[in-house]
């Protein structure tokens, strides 16, 4: 479903990813862990086309993200190509990023209506179902600023799912939440992970959450994968010293 080939990413002089190869199967749930600055979030941002690769290629469902064919040549992707590949991908952000100029319902329906051309009534029906699923059925007409952080993040999850993505990217989705709101969002994501066939790519510092939802865990450091394996293996008997150090630091925090 997702394939990184020798992907490099530099911001100015800073190399964030180097020669990164990995792939994710359809329906697979993968968690990226590692110290901050190790390039995890950059991977999600590259997939969402918020950043462009410096070198290498990324394929999603066989389609290249960064380039397209024109005649026999590979040329950088134009906006039309990008919109085509983005259709398959959804993202939930650390800071929720709900649109403050729209109410909750509108936040969820606006993109399906505008970007996919779904009739508004149909989009609203779907949105109400999603709101029920995230346990906010009564908040359709509330304004984002009237919601708690946890509620806002649940709306953001509903909003991403309304686009019916095949791949969902979760970028530290509970990091900005007050501690008592974290479990609500995590439980929701657990349910979504276990009932759907979404391909999930998740960056998190919550190791219990990572253990619960993922098939596979990738440990990153300095833009490279230092270790990968099942959650059981990574969390109980990590092979690399770097992983042990990291887990020790996180779990004792």
């Amino acid at each position: 479903m997702i394939r990184f080939d020798k992907v490099g990413k530099r911001f100015g002089d800073v190399t964030v990813l180097r020669e990164l190869d990995f792939h994710v199967e359809r329906g697979e749930r993968v968690t990226l862990i590692g110290p901050s600055g190790s390039g995890k979030t950059t991977i999600l941002r590259l997939l969402m086309t918020l950043e462009r690769v410096t070198s290498g290629t990324i394929h999603v469902d066989g389609q290249c993200l960064s380039h397209m064919r024109r005649g026999d040549r590979q040329v950088p992707a134009d906006e039309r190509h990008l919109r085509q590949v983005r259709k398959k991908i959804g993202m939930v952000f650390q800071q929720f990023n709900l649109f403050p100029n729209m109410n909750v319902l509108r936040n969820i329906t606006e993109a399906p209506v505008r970007a996919l051309g779904v009739p508004r009534e149909q989009a609203e029906e779907k949105a109400r179902e999603l709101l029920k699923m995230v346990d906010l059925a009564g908040k359709a007409h509330a304004h984002p600023s009237q919601l708690s952080g946890g509620q806002q993040q649940r709306v953001a999850i509903a909003r991403a799912l309304a686009m019916e993505p095949e791949v969902l990217l979760l970028d530290e989705v509970t990091s900005a939440l007050d501690p008592e709101l974290v479990s609500g969002v995590q439980n929701l994501l657990r349910d979504i992970a276990h009932q759907g066939n979404l391909t999930l790519l998740c960056v998190t510092h919550e190791m219990n959450f990572a253990r619960d939802i993922s098939h596979r865990v990738l440990m990153f450091d300095q833009g490279q994968i230092v270790e990968e394996g099942s959650p059981e293996q990574i969390f109980t008997e990590p092979a690399q010293q770097r992983t042990r150090d990291f887990l020790q630091a996180v779990l004792n925090a």
Partner: peptide
């Protein structure tokens, strides 16, 4: 983040 969310929603 507002623009990025809009990109992620394929506007």
């Amino acid at each position: 983040g507002q623009r990025e969310a809009a990109v992620a929603l394929n506007f």
